[in-house]
């Protein structure tokens, strides 16, 4: 069991760490939370066996939410762009702007799929919905992204604007 857990750690730590790093401005905080995820995972391993990768992401999501609640720098943490995007990259900047204009559930499913490369099963666990709902939400999110991408810049600065699509999942 210990060897299986180490295998899980080696395989999934980079993904979990990256998931957290994309959502936190502070890389050391992301590393702290990643370590905490695997500390909790080891406790679970001793009690119930080695958890799945999807379980790791759900735990990371929960720790991230707690971290945000506790943080005195909430506004900074909730900034859409953590670190690492070159300021002179027009396309990346525009993509981030469009992402920010989307509904939070659409934005998150796009990030989970195209940044974190979670499988449908893993994304469903993190989003607390069925796998079918993930695909529907992804489809609608892609449509909303596409619509927002075509809008004039002046129309895109308002988060959650109605122009980005209202379809729920």
């Amino acid at each position: 069991m210990t060897a299986r857990f180490v295998g899980l750690f080696e395989a999934e730590y980079p993904r979990v760490h990256a998931y957290l790093a994309r959502r936190l401005p502070d890389r050391s905080a992301a590393e702290d939370l990643a370590s905490e995820v695997f500390g909790i995972a080891w406790q679970r391993t001793m009690a119930d066996g080695v958890p799945s990768p999807a379980w790791l992401f759900v735990t990371a999501r929960n720790l991230l939410a707690n971290h945000r609640r506790k943080s005195a720098r909430r506004e900074e943490i909730e900034a859409a762009v953590p670190t690492g995007v070159p300021a002179d990259d027009d396309t990346a900047d525009r993509v981030l702007l469009v992402l920010e204009s989307l509904r939070p559930d659409h934005r998150e499913v796009l990030r989970l799929r195209y940044w974190d490369e979670l499988s449908g099963h893993e994304a469903a666990q993190v989003l607390d919905c069925s796998e079918g709902a993930v695909w529907v939400r992804l489809h609608r999110a892609r449509r909303a992204f596409s619509a927002a991408w075509d809008l004039p810049v002046s129309s895109r600065h308002h988060p959650h604007s109605t122009a980005t699509g209202r379809g729920g999942t």
């Binding site: 990256a18 994309r22 762009v81 690492g84 990346a92 993509v95 992402l99 940044w115 991408w149």
Partner: peptide, 16 residues
Amino acid sequence: LIASADPLRDTAPLAP
């Protein structure tokens, strides 16, 4: 497009 804006796109895998 979305992948191009990944904050970690130019970062090596975040190994332990």
